[in-house]
């Protein structure tokens, strides 16, 4: 037996993402953002996307390219304070922005990835983020129903992958990546290093290969991955 090889080219990996697709994008700030996959998505140009990402990166980086190219209709996120363009587009009504509490966004994605319908929580109960949400009562306690989130495709940045798509992440580049890597029927991972089968020790795997569809090896990293000098 031999585990299948999922390595492919950047162009092939991203091909076929259609207009109106829901796209999850890993990363929290720079660490874990799949900048190369995002650039390719900009190049291929599908429109009217719903993007699910913790943040909107910063000007000239990552998700900002998708905003600049007008490909984003809707952003499901937690905080966009470092991207003035995202704020401007939101205020002008050119994109719709749905804010989630950060850990609730994580749990909604995890629920989606785990085949669940949603989660119950009291987070944000007294805030405007709870408006219009369904409530249920369990053991005399009221909870908000937060629906599960899935996407059509998830874009993931890994440190190491093997050819089957087992992934690991480093430091704070992990963040939303392993959650999103479970929450879409098509998962595309860019990896800084792609190893032969057997070279990524089973105990080191953060995302098991069966969740992953395409693996793209990054060459030399672009400037976007570097330390930001503010």
């Amino acid at each position: 037996m031999r585990l299948p090889d999922k390595t492919t080219t950047l162009e092939e990996a991203v091909a076929g993402i259609g207009d109106g697709a829901v796209v999850m994008v890993g990363g929290f700030g720079v660490p874990g953002t799949p900048f190369t996959l995002i650039r390719e998505l900009v190049r291929q140009g599908p429109k009217n996307l719903t993007v699910i990402k913790n943040d909107a990166n910063e000007t000239g980086m990552g998700v900002d390219h998708l905003l600049a190219s007008g490909q984003v209709a809707r952003l499901i996120t937690t905080h966009i304070g470092l991207n003035p363009r995202a704020i401007e587009l939101m205020n002008a009504g050119k994109i719709e922005v749905e804010f989630n509490p950060q850990g609730i966004l994580a749990e909604r994605i995890r629920a989606g990835g785990a085949g669940l319908g949603g989660i119950l929580t009291d987070i944000a109960e007294d805030t405007e983020l709870a408006r219009g949400k369904q409530r249920v009562e369990i053991d005399a306690k009221r909870f908000l129903v937060e629906t599960a989130l899935r996407a059509d495709v998830a874009l993931i940045h890994a440190d190491r992958a093997d050819t089957f798509g087992n992934l690991d992440y480093v430091a704070t580049a992990r963040n939303f990546n392993p959650l999103m890597a479970m929450a879409a029927p098509r998962v595309i991972a860019e990896a800084e290093r792609v190893l032969a089968l057997g070279e990524l020790p089973p105990d080191d795997v953060h995302t098991p290969g069966p969740f992953v569809d395409h693996v793209v090896e990054l060459g030399a990293l672009t400037e976007e991955y570097a330390v930001v000098r503010r």
Binding site: Q102, I123, A124
Partner: peptide, 8 residues
């Protein structure tokens, strides 16, 4: 800009 993790 959104509440990030502040609510939790």
């Amino acid at each position: 800009p959104g509440a990030g993790g502040g609510i939790e």
